[in-house]
């Protein structure tokens, strides 16, 4: 599938990094404000899909770094694993756990299991949307 549109191809090169950055922004913003792994994943998936329309499926696969199916697998694993640490602390399953890191220059960084869960969701969403899109696109 290749639309061979010069305008789309040129614009796509500018829009793709912007969209990917925006998806990262949404992912990180998700905990305290509207956002999160799911919509961030959709934005990333649509960015890759746009790239697919502008270029071709091979190019879309290249920016993914991993096969979309593997993304689903690893994302799912990350999601399940992030729910487990609470059990070792004697809390029910899925209880969120937060810890703070003090970095030398940047100040304190607050990390928690929900972030890992969100990253897992992000990977699953990107993986599953692109598995479907790429499969349909490659059938032609």
């Amino acid at each position: 599938m290749n639309m061979q549109s010069l305008i789309l191809r040129t614009a796509g090169q500018f829009i793709l990094p912007l969209l990917l950055l925006f998806s990262l922004f949404l992912l990180l913003r998700g905990h305290n404000e509207p956002g999160g792994g799911f919509i961030a994943g959709l934005v990333a998936a649509s960015a890759v899909s746009l790239h697919l329309f502008a270029m071709d499926t091979a190019a879309a696969r290249r920016i993914l770094l991993a096969a979309p199916r593997d993304l689903i697998g690893w994302g799912l694993t990350l999601g399940v694993v992030s729910a487990v640490p609470s059990i070792f602390l004697g809390e029910p399953f899925f209880t969120s756990i937060w810890f703070e890191l003090t970095l030398p220059v940047l100040g304190t960084l607050k990390l928690g299991t929900p972030l890992f869960f969100d990253v897992g969701v992000y990977m699953v969403v990107v993986g599953s949307v692109l598995t479907i899109v790429l499969n349909l696109a490659e059938e032609h």
Binding site: I72, L76, T77, L89, P92, F93
Partner: peptide, 28 residues
């Protein structure tokens, strides 16, 4: 409720989810 009991309830869901995820990872 103690955490070991809470784990007992969650395990029948967690185990297949985890083995499913591992089996996607070992697809090849």
């Amino acid at each position: 409720m103690s955490s070991s009991l809470s784990l007992t309830v969650a395990l029948p869901i967690l185990i297949p989810l985890l083995s499913g995820a591992l089996s996607v990872a070992g697809w090849r």
